[in-house]
Design a protein around this nucleic acid. Sequence first.
DNA 1: ACAAAAGTGTTGAGAGTACACCCATGC
DNA 2: GCATGGGTGTACTCTCAACACTTTTGT
Lengths: 234, 234
Amino acid sequence: MTGNIVKNYDPTLYDRPSVSVDVVIFSLVAEDLQVLLVKRKYPPYTGMWAIPGGFVHMDEALEDAAARELAEETGVTDVYMEQLYTFGTPNRDPRTRVITVAYFALVPYDEVHPRPGDDATETAWFSVFDLPALAFDHKEILEYALTRLRYKLEYTAVGFQLLPDEFTLSELQRAYEIILREPLDKRNFRRKILTADILEETGNLRKLGEGRPAKLYRYRANAVAEVKTRRLFP
Amino acid sequence: MTGNIVKNYDPTLYDRPSVSVDVVIFSLVAEDLQVLLVKRKYPPYTGMWAIPGGFVHMDEALEDAAARELAEETGVTDVYMEQLYTFGTPNRDPRTRVITVAYFALVPYDEVHPRPGDDATETAWFSVFDLPALAFDHKEILEYALTRLRYKLEYTAVGFQLLPDEFTLSELQRAYEIILREPLDKRNFRRKILTADILEETGNLRKLGEGRPAKLYRYRANAVAEVKTRRLFP
DNA sequence: ACAAAAGTGTTGAGAGTACACCCATGC
DNA sequence: GCATGGGTGTACTCTCAACACTTTTGT
């Protein structure tokens, strides 16, 4: 049992897996919910589409690694990002044991300037409803991210992270309709979101050709972003 | 940039962190929500209380590692367990870089037979409202687990995992009152949970000394465990 | 018969849902 | 003056919350 004492004292004597981060990047593009994918430059799965990601540096926090990957692929910083789940099935990477901590990010489309990182030949947006074949277990990761995003949108105001700073109520309603895939009633939508007290008028108007100009709103930075859920028990 | 090609082809050339799992084990004990902690046998933090956990074996799935740790400390298998979050701040372990994937488990108190694993001198239950000093960043992990548990209890039926197979409605109500820390109305509670159609009578009665015997119920295995949330938008 | 716990209905308030027309601007 | 998108109110339904007494058993 002396071996156990040593092992418990010195974890570096255990075999260690590799640890990576992958970032599922969502945006609203052309009236559609899309994700940014990269085409792999190196084996395995060379030429296949994948979620952008990379290995965690030894002195780097996980969220810093995720933010670094996001910036490398899109140039954006300071966007909404949260840890999604950690995937570690033993043979998910054919090379060696790789445990990946997945994140998802919500970026306003107008802020993104995709550029392939060192390990990709190409980056492109894909509709979440029409995805190509994906490397590793990335299909599973993406499906989980989508489930979580939909779920989260239902009870938090996180959807604003997908819109530009200023937006009209019609644009906001369209964003929700795209993500939820159902039409919403205009009057009820406006009443509910305005009484929720999470928006403020910017004072500006948007004129786009025909029609009456729309008031522009912004998300109140200090707004309470969560809604009470209907509890199972009284 | 040839170095990059090699690195992308062979992730084992990167330095690798150690990866552990920690399991926050909740149960209802003596009218209180408690967690099982272990007293550390080895440095660092020798003699300090900690969340049970250990290193992930190279050929072992993360959830298998968590289930193994749970079984080692409590003897229980087949209980509710879910991945909580992955903590990877660079210096959270003074020995080396250790990334830990935290899980939380809900166990019925009557099934638990705590016994210290190889790396602990002692195990004990502690009220979540009166915790000792904890090793590493385990305080943070435990607080996060508690937040998640409370949150989850509000919109899923996961609370049943803390009770024995058969229970009375009064016991169930008391369990929810303990966790939510608020008194609930008996009539409203019973109406709501019975109309939710997630329980079935077992046909048995519980007699405990005085008072009218109570009908026993069990959680319907195939019941839909989630409640629709009240959406932020119509 | 009384102490102790189980069990049972009704009413009022607030939120959600469904639904149709007028307003400001560009062409 | 008409086409286009922006903006507004009301009535019905349903769920939630508050509240007190009767029933069954053991002693």
